[in-house]
Design a protein around this nucleic acid. Structure first.
Length: 604
DNA sequence: AGCCTTTGACCAGCG
DNA sequence: TCGCTGGTCAAAGGC
C-alpha cells in the first residue's frame, strides 16, 4: 500500500519546483513542449530522432511507414471529428437516460470488438442500442475525477488547484474570468458548435463541474503559451466511434492506403454504422437521486444525486434536456472512498475494495484493473484514494472521467489501482487476471465478457526499472501511467507511455502530457489517450481556456479548452472530456509511430 | 428485501 | 418579514 511515503513521493513527482502557477506553467512548458519528443510524433518523422538514441526497433510494434501520411490524416481526422462526430447519435430514453444520469454522464456505447483484432474476443462493451450501455471512455485522465475526473471526480489537487482559475491574458471566456470573483460554478460553452449534438443523453455534451471547497482561484491560464486557436474553439463532444473503423491500435498490420482512405472517409462522413458512443465521463460511482427540481434559469430540470457510499459527501447535480441529454453535471465534494468495484453495490464494505489494492508501494499493483476512472492510491490506512486527491490534496471532487457503464453493475469500478509501483512480471500476471475488463453488464453477461477479456493476449512486459503510478484506467482499457520520480519529465512520460503499451497491451496513455486532467490543468497541458478501439481520447486541460500548442501535433490536438473554476470547481462540458474518433488505423499508425519514436523503456 | 426514483413539502440563503 | 430560489428531505412506489 502506498502509505504516507508513497504519497509524499507522489507529491514530489507531481510537484513542480515552484509553487507559483506561472512558474509552474513556465517550467512545464519549457520542459514538456519546447522540445517535446512527442512533437516529432506528429511531425515529419523522417527528421525525427529516437529519443535518447534509443532504437525504436525495440518496440514490438511496427513503426514503419505511414508516418507522415498517417499523421496528417490523424490530424485531419481529429479536426474532422471535432466538428462532425457529434452529428451521429442515437437516442436513448428512459432507462438509458437514467443510467446516464446515474453514471454522471451519458450512456456510452462502445463497441470494442475490434480491440486486439487478432483476438477472437469481442468487446464486452458492445452495447445494443437502447440497452443499458455504459460506457467507457476513459481517458488517461480523468478523472473524471475524471471528470474526470475527470478523475475528475476524485481528483484532489493540493496546490495546483488554487491556481487553476488564475488567468491573466488568455482568451478565457467571460465566465472563466468571473470565476475569479465568485465561487459560482459555471460552464464554458463550446463556441464552435452551436448545433447541439445529436447524441443521446450522455453523448451529448454535458458540462461537468467539480465543486470543490478548496481551490482558490487563480486562473491558471498562461497566455504566454503559444496557441493557434482561441481555446474556445476546439471543443468537441465527439463521442461516437465507428466500430468498423476501430481496429486495435495494436494491430500491426499496416493498413493499405485504400483501407486508410476508406476509413478516413468513413470517419469524415461519420457513417457510424453502429455508433460507438462514448460519454464524456462517467464516474463509476454509485449515485442515488434524491431530488429533482426545475431551476429558474435553466430550461432543463436539475436532478440531485448523492454518492451512495456511506459517509461519502459527494453530490452531483445533473441537468438534462427534455430528450434526456445531459447538459450539465456539477460535482460537489470529494469522494471519501475508492471507486466501487464492478458489479458491486455500494453497500459492499469498503474493506472489500482492498482486495484490489496494491500491496506494496514498490510493487505494481494491478490487483484490480477494471475501469478505474481515476487512479487511486492507497492511503496509509490502506484505503485507496484517488491519486489526484492523495497526491495533490485538493478538494477537487467528483469524478470526471469515468466510465460507467451500463447498468448499475457495470463498471462502477475501477478501483483504484494505485499504484505506485514498479512493474514486474508478476504484475503482468495480475493484469492478466484482473485486466482491464470493462465490466459492463450485469450478471452472467458481465462475467462472461470479463472472462473473454481476460483471455486477451498479453504483451510481454519489458523490464521497467521505474516506479509507476497508474493514475487512470479506463473501462476500455485505456490507462495512464505516471512514472516517478520526475513524472513531469516528458521523456519519462514517453517511456511510460510506451511501457504502458507494452505492459498492458491494449492501451496506453500517450500524448504531450500524460497527466491527470487536474494536473494538466495546473500545467496547462492536456492528455491524450488511446483506446483499444482506436479511438483517441482527448483529455482536456481543466485549466482555464488553455490553448495548447504543441509543435508537430495535429491542429486538433493543439487546442483545447477547459475551465478551472474557483475553489476547485471544475466545469467541463462534454467537449471537455471528449473522445475523438479516429480511424483505427490512423490511431494505430500514430501509436506505432509513437512507439517507434519512444525509448524502449522508462529509466529512473 | 434492498435500493432506487419520484415528487411534493420543507428548509435555508438572499435580496 | 416576505418572496424567490435552490437544495434537501422523506414517504410512496417501482424494479
Amino acid at each position: 500500500m502506498a502509505g504516507t511515503n508513497n504519497r509524499g513521493a507522489l507529491m514530489e513527482d507531481w510537484m513542480l519546483p515552484s509553487p507559483s502557477p506561472r512558474t509552474l506553467m513556465s517550467n512545464f512548458w519549457n520542459e514538456e513542449f519546447s522540445s517535446s519528443p512527442f512533437s516529432n510524433i506528429f511531425s515529419d518523422n523522417s527528421s525525427s530522432k529516437p529519443l535518447d538514441g534509443i532504437d525504436k526497433s525495440k518496440t514490438s510494434f511496427d513503426s514503419s511507414g505511414e508516418g507522415t501520411v498517417q499523421e496528417t490524416k490523424a490530424s485531419l481526422l481529429f479536426e474532422s471529428n471535432l466538428f462532425d462526430s457529434n452529428e451521429k447519435s442515437t437516442s436513448h430514453g428512459g432507462l438509458a437516460e437514467r443510467m446516464s444520469a446515474r453514471a454522471g454522464f451519458g450512456v456510452l456505447k462502445i463497441d470494442t470488438s475490434r480491440i486486439n483484432s487478432s483476438a477472437p474476443v469481442r468487446s464486452p462493451v458492445t452495447i445494443p442500442p437502447g440497452v443499458s450501455p455504459r460506457e467507457l471512455l476513459e481517458s488517461p485522465v480523468f478523472l473524471p475525477s475524471a471528470i474526470a475526473q475527470p478523475s475528475p471526480t476524485t481528483g484532489k489537487l493540493p496546490f495546483l488547484m488554487p491556481h487553476n482559475c488564475k488567468s491573466t491574458t488568455s482568451p478565457v471566456p467571460k465566465k472563466a474570468e468571473d470565476c475569479l470573483h465568485d465561487n459560482s460554478a459555471f460552464s464554458f460553452q463550446p463556441l464552435l458548435r452551436s448545433k447541439p449534438p445529436n447524441f443521446s443523453t450522455a453523448e451529448k455534451g454535458a458540462s461537468v463541474v467539480h465543486q470543490n471547497q478548496s481551490s482558490e482561484n487563480d486562473n491558471q491560464q498562461e497566455s504566454s503559451l503559444p496557441s493557434n486557436s482561441t481555446g474556445t474553439e476546439d471543443v468537441t463532444d465527439a463521442n461516437l466511434i465507428k466500430p468498423k473503423t476501430c481496429d486495435s491500435m495494436f494491430d500491426n498490420d499496416n493498413p493499405s492506403p485504400t483501407d486508410e482512405q476508406e476509413e478516413s472517409k468513413e470517419n469524415q462522413n461519420l457513417e457510424y454504422s453502429s455508433a460507438l458512443v462514448i460519454s464524456p465521463a462517467e464516474d463509476g460511482y454509485n449515485w442515488r437521486k434524491y431530488g429533482q427540481k426545475q431551476v429558474k434559469n435553466s430550461e432543463h430540470p436539475r436532478s440531485y444525486y448523492k454518492c451512495t457510499h456511506p459517509d461519502c459527501p459527494v453530490k452531483k447535480k445533473v441537468e438534462r434536456s427534455q430528450d434526456g441529454q445531459i447538459t450539465e453535471i456539477v460535482y460537489k465534494g470529494s469522494h471519501s472512498h475508492p471507486l466501487p468495484p464492478p458489479n458491486r453495490r455500494p453497500s459492499v464494505p469498503l474493506s472489500h475494495f482492498n482486495d484490489f489494492q496494491i500491496d506494496g508501494q514498490e510493487d505494481i499493483c494491478f490487483k484490480h484493473s477494471h475501469n478505474a476512472t481515476s487512479s487511486q492510491g492507497s492511503t496509509p490506512n490502506g484505503h485507496i484514494h484517488d491519486v489526484h486527491s492523495g497526491v495533490l490534496e485538493t478538494k477537487l471532487s467528483g469524478s470526471l472521467i469515468t466510465t460507467d457503464i451500463a447498468d448499475k453493475s457495470v463498471m462502477e469500478s475501477g478501483e483504484a489501482v494505485d499504484v505506485s509501483s514498479t512493474i514486474s512480471s508478476s504484475d503482468k500476471n495480475d493484469r492478466g487476471t484482473h485486466g482491464f475488463i470493462p465490466s459492463t453488464f450485469d450478471g452472467d453477461e458481465t462475467e462472461s465478457k470479463r472472462r473473454k477479456m481476460d483471455v486477451l493476449p498479453q504483451r510481454t512486459l519489458p523490464p521497467v526499472p521505474l516506479t509507476w503510478q497508474l493514475w487512470h484506467q479506463g473501462l476500455s482499457g485505456s490507462l495512464g501511467l505516471l512514472c516517478k520520480p520526475q513524472a513531469s519529465n516528458l521523456h519519462q512520460r514517453s517511456q511510460l507511455a510506451q511501457a504502458s503499451i507494452a505492459q498492458f497491451g491494449n492501451v496506453a496513455a500517450y500524448g504531450s502530457v500524460c497527466l491527470p486532467p487536474q494536473l494538466s490543468a495546473a500545467s496547462g497541458g492536456f492528455c491524450f489517450g488511446m483506446l483499444p478501439s482506436g479511438m483517441a481520447v482527448q483529455v482536456p486541460s481543466h485549466g482555464t481556456a488553455m490553448p495548447v500548442h504543441i509543435p508537430g501535433h495535429p491542429p486538433a490536438m493543439q487546442r483545447y479548452q477547459g475551465l478551472m473554476l474557483p475553489r476547485g470547481e471544475m466545469k467541463v462540458n462534454s467537449q471537455g472530456l471528449s473522445s475523438l474518433p479516429v480511424a483505427t488505423r490512423t490511431a494505430s499508425a500514430i501509436y506505432q509511430q509513437l512507439m517507434g519514436r519512444l525509448p524502449q523503456g522508462p529509466q529512473t
